[in-house]
Design a protein around this nucleic acid. Structure first.
Length: 892
DNA sequence: CCAACGCATGGAT
DNA sequence: AATCCATGCGTTG
């Protein structure tokens, strides 16, 4: 470093009186520019001015604007298009391509060559960072940080969002992200070769085509985002954020261009220590007779393998590493990054099967996890793998595979001692994480017995309501974390779009999108102990889990705050506005934003100790642990003893802004499916369409309906008359055409069935109760007032008991989907009344089901409305029967 | 005979 | 229909 600073622009080299920041360099530092050059840079004319004759200029595919793609200065000015070519950032934003060019490659990519082949897998793997070619790269403005890079590069498949999910739809995030490029290129080696990124020697060709990006490469990435803020402790409520704690190794701290994996190649470790993960699929070898590229999973890990970070981990890590602070958003919306030195990356987890936990000592690894996060292995013998357990003890497992059905089955052998030392059994969960830059593989665990699945939902809810005392912590998932210093948080694959400035902390996403985004597969991660020993070996997804995750997402959103002294620019993505910050947002304690009486924007924060709510300025940023004593804005209320300003009533008004979405969701989740069915029927009513068309149109046109394959031509049952979704004219609700009548009857039947189910439940319940209480009358209908209801008439009995076997009467509701095939002529006169009845009953039913108390009164109400069809019923039945026989015949 | 190993099978997704 | 993976089971030492 010379003492006199000169302009970083090599074409200028003016001495700098005062330097201005230019582009961010690969080291993370900004290029110091003189006024003139800085102005040129800021005006976007730098390359025009200084690099006009240089190579690398390309035209925006949309507007034709010339951009110096081959230059770091213009790195953030364009995006690479999937179809080739580039688009300037302006056009890209218009077309919602917000994904940046891949993060900057490790500096080593610009070093001449790998000094020599490094057998260390990681040394191969880092080259895959060049999956999209060494240039051009687009640098997110001010996000030219390794943290971003690291996140982009992490093979955090578990956090990727299904491409059909909300986030992707909203952001097109993955289109150019390295992760996605990674996935794509992993399948197409040739692409890398073509773009010059493949720098592997022959011996670097790997076998198992791992999708992952390598550890070393990630580790090499420097953390360059200066920390402008800090928060002391991470809020435990971020429990579903996967956490990575980044740390610079001491040796590297001062040399940001140094690349451990290459500049200081490690000898081949045996066993492979830590440097897992990476399997670059730079291989073209055939494995088990099949090219690995094909074998490589294209999709994400199954949700059940997604790592779930717990409160404890977060607490632990955030407690130990207080300097977390920066979050890179938007440009890297899949990830939330908190800068620091070590990168702690949960990789995957697995519930131990009986055989895993058995004495055989073989832990079957999910194939994708193994291929993504563990070193590539070519021979079935595999590799010894050093893993650290939660106590810091190191174990060596044999990571290997068995050929299986033209595929592979990966196992860790020799796990018995480790599992025993952890006192794990079938049903417990082992987690695999990685600490970079050491690349250490860490095995944690979660005891099933102490981690009730229901806890997490509560966790989310409680945390959201800010009630620290209500937080339940799951039994400890324990990670060995002595190496974790300073945190880097990586969010799950939920796009984190910053909305930190929004006054209310509600999500900017349409709820449905959030749900879609989150519910895709995220929730499958939950394990159920009950699955053990049950027929189903795979964990089931509970609806509540969807809620939980949604809450988590919302919670996460609520934690974001804009970076200090930062002005956002607003980006519109598919109609939604998002605030974009150059500097990373920060994370803090969730608060409730509101406006006080004077119209001033404020926020309410809850003391962690006394749980009183304190009014704070809207721009106040709270650490995740906040108590009254931290209330520097209102010294009078800094002791916990001070009264709360907010009345309980006011609080109630405020809190729903937080708690409502979940409760709504819960309602939706718990909604009776029958109601849904009824609503669908109503929807069908609204969609009455094509019958007339169907009647008049030639067969070919009718074929455009969603005809059930087993129905005959001309069948007018509800299935066959349905138009393809969205097609066909809408009919008025008062319409009495044939189709409307049919649909109405269908609706009415649905209602009846629903009521019948309801009454069946009630009757059976009561009967059971009675039988329990009166075992001496096991086979008799009790002479009980309630049961008399069931025995009034055969029809009513049939209906009320809802068992077609309990009477000789044909239960018209057995196959309601058929009975709408009756000729509409039989009852068209009373149809509207019937529909009205049905609707009334439906509404009544809704009220009833909301309070399902099963008392007699309700039952009577219920039963009195059941199936008043009379003659219509008989007519229906005969037609139904005939239709049945028709279909049966077809079945043959 | 037993344990370990490696492959095959079939249920689940 | 294809794939995954838990586990069964034959083989080997």
């Amino acid at each position: 470093m010379s003492s006199t600073k000169v302009c970083f622009n090599s074409n200028c080299k003016d001495a700098l009186d005062r330097s201005r920041k230019g582009w961010r360099r690969r080291t993370g530092e900004f290029a110091d520019l003189c006024d003139r050059c800085a102005s040129a840079y800021e005006e976007g004319k730098f390359c025009e001015t200084f690099h006009l004759n240089a190579s690398g200029w390309r035209c925006c595919e949309s507007c034709g604007k010339q951009i110096h793609c081959g230059c770091i200065v213009s790195f953030h000015m364009f995006v690479l298009l999937d179809a080739g070519g580039i688009e300037c950032i302006t056009c890209a934003r218009k077309s919602f391509i917000l994904t940046p060019n891949p993060a900057w490659p490790p500096p080593s990519l610009f070093l001449p060559v790998l000094p020599e082949r490094n057998k260390d897998f990681s040394s191969k793997n880092w080259t895959q960072i060049a999956g999209s070619g060494p240039m051009p790269w687009r640098q997110a403005p001010s996000l030219f940080s390794s943290s971003s890079a690291q996140l982009e590069l992490q093979p955090r498949i578990p956090f990727e969002v299904d491409t059909r999910s909300g986030s992707d739809r909203l952001f097109s995030i993955d289109r150019l992200s390295t992760a996605s490029l990674e996935r794509k290129t992993a399948d197409k080696l040739s692409e890398r070769v073509m773009n010059g990124s493949l720098k592997l020697g022959a011996s670097d060709v790997l076998e198992n085509g791992n999708a992952g990006i390598n550890w070393a490469e990630q580790a090499n990435v420097r953390v360059n985002v200066p920390q402008k803020s800090s928060f002391s402790k991470n809020d435990t409520s971020t429990s579903h954020f996967s956490l990575a704690v980044s740390s610079l190794s001491p040796n590297d701290a001062n040399d940001q261009t140094k690349v451990p994996g290459t500049a200081a190649p490690r000898p081949t470790p045996t066993p492979v220590i830590g440097k897992i993960g990476a399997g670059l699929s730079g291989e073209t070898q055939i494995r088990n007779g099949r090219p690995r590229g094909e074998a490589r999973p294209r999709t994400q890990l199954l949700p059940r393998y997604w790592p779930r970070i717990t409160d404890q981990e977060l607490q632990k890590i955030s407690g130990e590493y207080p300097n977390v602070g920066h979050v890179s958003m938007l440009y890297y919306p899949n990830h939330m990054v908190l800068c620091s030195n070590s990168v702690f990356t949960p990789l995957f987890e697995k519930m131990l099967s009986a055989s895993d936990a058995g004495r055989i000592g073989r832990l079957v690894l999910p194939k994708k996890c193994a291929e993504t996060y563990f070193p590539p292995i070519s021979s079935p013998e595999g590799l010894p793998l050093k893993v650290q357990d939660s106590k810091g003890k190191e174990w060596i497992f044999q990571f290997r595979f068995w050929p299986n059905n033209n595929s592979r089955m990966y196992v860790l052998e020799g796990v018995t001692p480790c599992i025993q030392s952890m006192q794990l059994q079938a049903g417990d969960i082992v987690t695999f994480s990685r600490i970079d830059p050491e690349g250490k593989l860490v095995m944690g665990f979660r005891k099933a017995s102490t981690a009730p699945t229901s806890d997490q939902g509560n966790e989310a809810v409680n945390a959201r309501s800010g009630d620290a005392s209500a937080k339940k912590t799951k039994a400890g998932e324990v990670f060995s974390s002595p190496h974790l210093l300073k945190g880097r948080l990586v969010s799950p694959g939920i796009s984190q779009i910053n909305q930190a400035n929004s006054a209310d902390q509600t999500s900017p996403w349409p709820k449905d999108d959030i749900s879609r985004c989150l519910t895709k597969e995220v929730v499958g991660a939950k394990r159920k102990n009950s699955n053990l020993g049950s027929k189903s070996k795979r964990p089931r997804v509970e609806t509540e889990e969807l809620i939980e995750l949604k809450l988590t997402w919302e919670l996460a959103q609520g934690l974001f705050r804009p970076p200090p002294n930062n002005v956002s620019s607003v980006v519109v993505i598919e109609g939604f506005e998002f605030e974009e910050y150059e500097d990373a947002p920060i994370i803090g304690r969730p608060t409730i934003f509101a406006t006080d009486n004077s119209g001033e924007k404020i926020q309410w924060a809850q003391c962690e100790s006394c749980f009183k709510w304190r009014k704070l300025p809207a721009d106040a940023f709270l650490p995740s642990r906040w108590t009254c004593s931290d209330n520097s804005w209102d010294p009078e209320r800094s002791p916990c003893s001070a009264a709360q300003e907010l009345t309980a009533e006011e609080l109630v008004c405020l809190l729903p802004t937080i708690t409502q979405p979940p409760s709504k969701k819960i309602k939706a989740a718990k909604r009776d499916p029958d109601s849904d069915e009824a609503l669908q029927a109503l929807d069908a009513l609204a969609n009455l369409a094509i019958q007339e068309e169907g009647e008049n149109l030639p067969e070919s046109s009718q074929a455009t309906t969603t005809k059930h394959p087993r129905h005959r031509p001309g069948c007018t049952c509800i299935v066959c008359i349905q138009p393809p979704s969205g097609k066909g004219p809408k009919h008025e609700q008062t319409c009495t055409c044939n189709i409307c009548s049919m649909v109405k009857r269908r609706f009415q039947t649905l209602m009846s069935r629903r009521e019948k189910k309801q009454s069946e439940k009630e009757a059976e319940k009561t009967a059971l109760q009675y039988l329990e209480q009166n075992p001496e009358f096991p086979l008799m209908f009790p002479d009980d007032e309630e049961f008399q209801l069931c025995t009034v008439s055969p029809i009513e009995k049939t209906v009320n008991l809802a068992s077609p076997l309990k009477g000789n009467i044909i239960d018209l509701n057995i196959q309601p989907e058929r009975d709408d095939e009756v000729s509409s002529g039989s009852d068209s006169g009373g149809m509207m009344r019937l529909v009205q009845d049905a609707t009334e009953r439906y509404l009544r039913q809704q009220r009833l089901s909301s309070s399902r108390n099963g008392n007699l009164g309700s039952k009577q109400t219920l039963l009195s409305g059941v199936f008043p069809l009379g003659t219509n019923a008989s007519a229906s039945s005969s037609v139904t029967e005939s239709c049945k026989s028709v279909h049966k015949e077809e079945d043959r």
